[in-house]
């Protein structure tokens, strides 16, 4: 079982640094981004399994960031951080394909639990994709050389 690659996105610097320490203590690998745009930059260059995304941020807000993550990296699971006042944005996020949401202020064990669930799903999905690929290669071996097939997908 590989180490979970996490990306924390929040505009609260101290929250990022403390949570990063907490998660790493619990055997996870965490990166941080202070905003949506930075998060997208990190995603495009690094392997990330689960994104923890604050929905209320200056600049690009949570919903918009989520939409872009799901567009560019559909396999990455997203857990949203929301306040009580913005349950609507949580609902909207779920519709957009977020894995789950956590109410602020959140318990670290809760968060860790959800991260594990998300990671499990991610792995299951990856597994399915891998199997599908193998099946395809077995049934159509020549397809490996077919340039039109995007094997990295």
């Amino acid at each position: 079982m590989s180490i979970v690659q996490i990306l924390l996105v929040d505009d609260e610097e101290r929250f990022l640094s403390t949570t990063k320490i907490l998660l790493e203590k619990r055997g996870m690998n965490a990166r941080t981004a202070p905003g949506g745009q930075e998060a997208l930059n990190i995603l495009s260059g690094n392997p990330v399994d689960v994104v923890i995304l604050d929905m209320k941020m200056p600049g690009m807000d949570g919903v918009e960031t989520l939409r872009r993550i799901k567009r560019d990296h559909p396999l990455v699971e997203v857990i949203m951080l929301t306040g009580h006042a913005s349950v609507e944005s949580a609902v909207e996020g779920l519709k957009l394909g977020a894995f789950d949401y956590v109410m602020k202020p959140c318990d670290v064990p809760d968060l860790v639990e959800k991260i594990k669930e998300a990671f499990a799903r991610k792995q299951a999905m990856d597994e399915k994709i891998r199997k599908a690929r193998i099946d395809r290669i077995i049934s159509h071996p020549m397809a490996v050389f077919d340039k039109r097939t995007d094997l990295d997908d």
Binding site: E12, T18, I21, H84, P105
Partner: peptide, 24 residues
Amino acid sequence: SAGMAHEINNPLQVMMAECYLIND
């Protein structure tokens, strides 16, 4: 008060994280 609640959530979140850190 809705807006206030939201603004209070952020510091609460930070404090929560700090508590867990101390706890750790």
